[in-house]
Design a protein around this nucleic acid. Structure first.
Lengths: 337, 337
DNA sequence: CCGATAATGTACAGCGCTAGAAAGATATTT
DNA sequence: AAATATCTTTCTAGCGCTGTACATTATCGG
């Protein structure tokens, strides 16, 4: 079952390869009669262009890589979906690379860009720092996501984490919480995404003239609901009192919800909970979860806009785009209650 | 910033392209001194082989496509992750194609295989029937997932849905349920996956000499938690009485849990709930969710085994592999209670 | 009715890498 | 020392498609 090649079609139709190619690409100046004859040959042979060859000849791959820590984190799987759909709309395909927050795998992402596999990369780093990225940043178009490193030459899309965390904290304060915890500090996260959220949280407390109690900053060991659950359970067992908790992401919030439920506390009456990312989970927990909602659609669009400009030849300094966010208020932290 | 090519390295090192290529591929018969010199040139220039060119030359792409309905369905995102990791172990990369359960997109998956982009395809069809697939099945290696169509010539991996549904139903019966509902019939799902689960459910009732009450088969409009919630809420509002429910997947189960909670019923005391897929969600709902657990690791391994055999040249009839499953018992449907 | 402009079509040199044939160099054997 | 075997390296023809340069026809105003 040998593949049908362009030249096979050309021979059958009795024309040159280029003419067949012109038909395939709907090049305007092909005589209707010829076009028909060629098309017939294409159909008869079931010809499909070999994309690899096309790529080698044109230098464009039509693919972009999306490098994220974990495919199955709800935030990233939802993001992936939107990226894939936006890519399709813009005529690209997406290769998803999972870095597992492993520094070596993250580095590999940036090195691979040079392998000519993709036209560009959208990358959400977790472990790599600014310098690491700057050092490896070769010529291939790159757009960074998240709050991590931001080398001056690289484009970057994010939400304003400080102000989003501030909003979440204010929301809890407004509904009467006074001992608000922050769940989700993690030693391995050096990217500052968490620390910015923590900063917004502190700022919120400050506004309300509440002194930050270090006991209320809950640490987790890794980015899982399980770790969140354990962290909150530990705090409860240590006797820490709190009436609200801002979580670094929805998975932690789900763990928190479960820990509170298991310990007999009710949400939001005893403890109000705010999550982050507004993944679909938030709408299906009991109680449903109030969550910080980054404008994902805007984020995806912005990332592609920047990337396409780079692919188009832009070589200037890095642009830093901040997309909006909102707070999706649900049962776990309703308006005044 | 022109790319460094093989020939550039060869010139710098003063050797032929093939020698450089030999070094790149760790070909054994290269004199140590030369190898070192070449390696130095590679490092100095920062050479990375152009994968597109390599592909054209070898005919192997090193990529496989994973075509699934939705990236952000927890079952599929967890599956994707495992597929991606298994692929890495076996030296492949994965391109994820989202079909959105759209017949045209599903068809496109099979047509694309011929475009020489990937060495093989792992495909979980939802809408395409046996004949459709058989018709489009060209020469490229293909392995199907799920319970859908099974053309004789195509390899196929699945779990035994009938017996898994039977297990779930028996479990509910054993803990005293007598009016057990089935949630998740969907008109658009023609693949038989749901109908097999329904069959196992009926079989379970039959064993217990319980007549199937059609009122207890809950229909949903689409595969979302929202649709599951609505379906169960409707049933409750219609006055349908039931004390157990087998759900077609975890997302429906989450919707059901929420509907029951919202209507003031407690789980499992009033109604016991069993989900399907054992996604990570199951462990973090309140109560936690008992769920049918396909052996994902085995499934992924089997799919790759079959695919690699096809890639390796196997041309025989389709193999149909059934991987195991278990029932992860959690709070929503504990053992006798 | 002619040269000029536009419309069609062909030829062929790459894109960067691989791999088999062939050549050159060195080691082993008798 | 000649002959054979074994390494090591070079040469070069593709992989299938694109795009430029050029050849060949139509089209058309004056």
């Amino acid at each position: 079952m040998a593949r049908v090649r362009l030249i096979d079609v050309a021979e059958l139709a009795g024309v040159s390869m280029k003419t067949v190619s012109n038909v395939v690409h709907s090049y305007p100046h092909v005589a209707p009669a010829l076009r028909e004859k060629v098309q017939a040959a294409i159909d008869q042979l079931g010809y499909r262009p070999n994309l690899t060859a096309r790529r080698l000849a044109t230098g464009k791959t039509g693919m972009i890589a999306l490098a994220i820590p974990e495919i199955d984190h709800p935030y990233f799987s939802e993001l992936s979906r939107q990226m894939a759909e936006e890519a399709t709309r813009r005529g690209y395909r997406v290769i998803i690379e999972q870095t597992l927050s492993d520094p070596d795998l993250e580095r590999a992402v940036l090195s691979d860009r040079e392998a000519g596999l993709v036209d560009g990369v959208i990358f959400h780093p977790v472990r790599m720092g600014t310098l690491d990225i700057a050092k490896l940043d070769a010529g291939t178009p790159l757009v960074l996501l998240g709050e991590a490193a931001m080398p001056v030459m690289t484009d970057h899309v994010m939400i304003d984490n400080v102000s989003a965390a501030l909003d979440a904290t204010r929301h809890l304060l407004a509904s009467g919480c006074r001992r608000i915890a922050f769940l989700g500090v993690i030693a391995a996260d050096i990217t500052g995404s968490t620390s910015q959220r923590l900063l917004g949280y502190q700022q919120g407390l400050l506004e309300a003239r509440i002194r930050l109690d270090p006991e209320l900053v809950f640490t987790a060991l890794e980015f899982t609901a399980e770790a969140g659950l354990r962290s909150v359970t530990d705090a409860i067992e240590r006797g820490v009192r709190f009436d609200g908790v801002v979580c670094r992401d929805d998975r932690f919030a789900i763990g928190a919800l479960k820990a509170l439920h298991d310990s007999g506390r009710s949400v939001p009456e005893d403890v109000a909970v705010v999550g982050w990312d507004n993944t679909f989970l938030a709408a299906y927990t009991s109680p449903t979860l109030t969550s910080v909602a980054p404008k994902k659609t805007a984020l995806v669009a912005a990332a592609f806009d920047l990337l396409e400009e780079r692919i188009g030849g832009y070589r200037g300094v890095g642009r830093h785009v901040i997309v909006g966010h909102s707070l999706e208020v649900r049962e776990s932290a309703p308006h005044a209650f």
